[in-house]
């Protein structure tokens, strides 16, 4: 990019930054304009990514260049047309098939991902040694805290277990105690996540202010 386009770019981004920051004074037309420009560019960019990264290389070009070799792509093409038919109210029902397809694939991926990407690795990661001989007392106590935290936080999401019999009441009381402990661990997690989010957002704010303070004077030299 040339120096002139860079210069214009820096001024445009500075102007947009100030327009967004003007929201601190209250809702105003400048902020709303910036907000709408943001949505406009985001949607436009998403359209281009969808076309150039997915539709063109995976559907349009293979069908145009070698239609006989890629005849199976007729299926997603047909499903895509049915999906587009949802734009017309009288054809809305036709869009059920591509949605059903997307849901089937999406649910299977989510299920497989949850099982092999979350559940099993997290369970494996929780099987930690609490023997001080393995890594010292600090690590052993820490691991014990981690295991208790995991089990109790999981128990917090266990909503059944009430009972009328003596054994049932004992079980319910035990679960209630675990749930209480789990709630505290979840609170620690929320506090840590909140603090990390505050730091991330502050870093962004410092970055934007630094941009305004350092880049604009450079363009005036």
């Amino acid at each position: 990019m040339s120096d002139v386009s860079n210069l214009i770019g820096i001024w445009v981004s500075a102007l947009l930054t100030v327009m967004v920051l003007s929201y601190l004074l209250g809702d105003n037309p400048l902020y709303r304009l910036a907000e709408h420009l943001f949505v406009g560019t985001a949607v436009g960019y998403a359209v281009l990514v969808a076309y150039y990264s997915l539709l063109r290389p995976r559907l349009i070009l293979p069908l145009l260049q070698a239609p006989l070799e890629n005849w199976t792509l007729v299926v997603p093409l047909l499903l895509a047309l049915l999906l587009l038919a949802r734009l017309n109210h009288s054809w809305r029902g036709a869009g059920m098939a591509p949605l059903a397809f997307l849901l089937g694939v999406g649910v299977a991926l989510a299920l497989g991902g949850a099982l092999f990407g979350s559940l099993l690795p997290q369970v494996e990661g929780t099987m930690l040694s609490v023997n001080p001989a393995d890594g010292g007392w600090g690590v052993a106590v820490g691991n014990l805290v981690l295991v208790i935290g995991t089990v109790s936080a999981l128990a917090y999401f266990y909503f059944t277990g009430q009972g009328d019999t003596g054994w049932g009441r004992l079980r319910a009381g035990f679960l209630k105690a675990w749930r209480g402990l789990g709630k505290w661990f979840i609170m620690v997690t929320f506090g840590a996540i909140f603090a990390s989010t505050v730091m991330a957002r502050l870093s962004l704010l410092i970055g934007r202010l630094q941009f305004l303070i350092t880049e604009i004077p450079k363009t005036l030299r």
Partner: peptide, 27 residues
């Protein structure tokens, strides 16, 4: 490293179990 990870892991396991159950209900 420890209490926060423990709490987060419990939440992740709960979400994973919920996802699996919801996914199975749909499938």
């Amino acid at each position: 490293a420890y209490p926060s990870t423990g709490g987060a892991r419990g939440i992740i396991l709960g979400v994973a179990l919920g996802t699996i159950l919801t996914g199975l209900r749909v499938l």
